[in-house]
Amino acid sequence: MTTTHSAGVPPRDVPGAPESPGAPGAQETPDALQEHFDATIARDQRIEPRDWMPDGYRNTLIRQIAQHAHSEIIGMQPEGEWITRAPSLRRKAILFAKVQDEAGHGLYLYSAAETLGADRADLTRRLIEGRQKYSSIFNYPTPTFADVGVIGWFVDGAAICNQVPLCRSSYGPYARAMVRICKEESFHQRQGYELLLTMMRGTAEQREMVQDSVNRWWWPSLMMFGPPDDASPNSARSMAWKIKRHSNDELRQRFVDMTVPQAGKLGVTLPDPDLRWNEERGRHDFGTPDWAELKRVITGDGPCNDQRIERRRTAHEDGAWVREAATAHAARRSERARKGTAA
């Protein structure tokens, strides 16, 4: 599955010719490397960390994987608010475990980005300084416990639509991380949906909470797939590189088609008067999200953008002394070990 052109060459040294003597392809010119890369992609084979890759491919991947990792970490906040208030011990355990899974997803993804030469601390700084983005969806508030269920159903559902095709992404470490993440996301989606089923069988007040939450999250969830295809400048290149496998609009359509029957079973109404089955297309027609709102939220003007970044910044800054202490202790330990060996 892999090519091993630039084994031993630090990833940042691309696209210069690899120098390690004896490595296969050491004599190849940049053109030959590019051809080999293109052929690997064309054969649907995977690119691995030590393979030569164009700068654009590397940078696109770092940007995408970092955004994805940031989304997992920032995404802990809206639901994390409810762990201490979950209304039963079983719901508390489910939610606590889910939010913990998201921290784990963030960890695998930062590790995948590190295989491309990125550094977790640097990516975290970029997030805190607003130089890298995360999913717009996490800038919406979670005023009721029903939001925990609806986030599981919609947001994890949309994430699955987005991420299942990424299990076949051309970059190996990303694709492998996505396999595990998708499995866990599918549990989360079922857990969210199961909470909503339970609430819909409860009191009238609970049913109202669920419908209200569905009304608030439906459109932002459709926006999770990004701008429409004709306004998504990076999509075509990512698809050519097989980093991305389906267009934003195609994935959005899949999500709608998947969700409508689930809404029916649950007994809630999706807040879109234009939503109906189109016999001819064999798919649902639906209304247009408010793209101006998406733009506002992405550029920092959503309901909770400042609060989300502020929390992350505070955690990072408050934890600095802990990380410094761990580093100092590790250095002292290895120094002691070295002296012990020398003595």
């Binding site: 802990m76 762990i83 939010v99 960890l107 929390r311 955690a315 802990v322």
Partner: peptide
């Protein structure tokens, strides 16, 4: 311990404290 969620000094500690 749940109060540490999203406030831990490092992601590894986030996971461990939740565990």
């Amino acid at each position: 311990l749940a109060e540490w969620t999203t406030r831990a000094p490092e992601l590894e500690e986030e996971v461990a404290l939740a565990n």
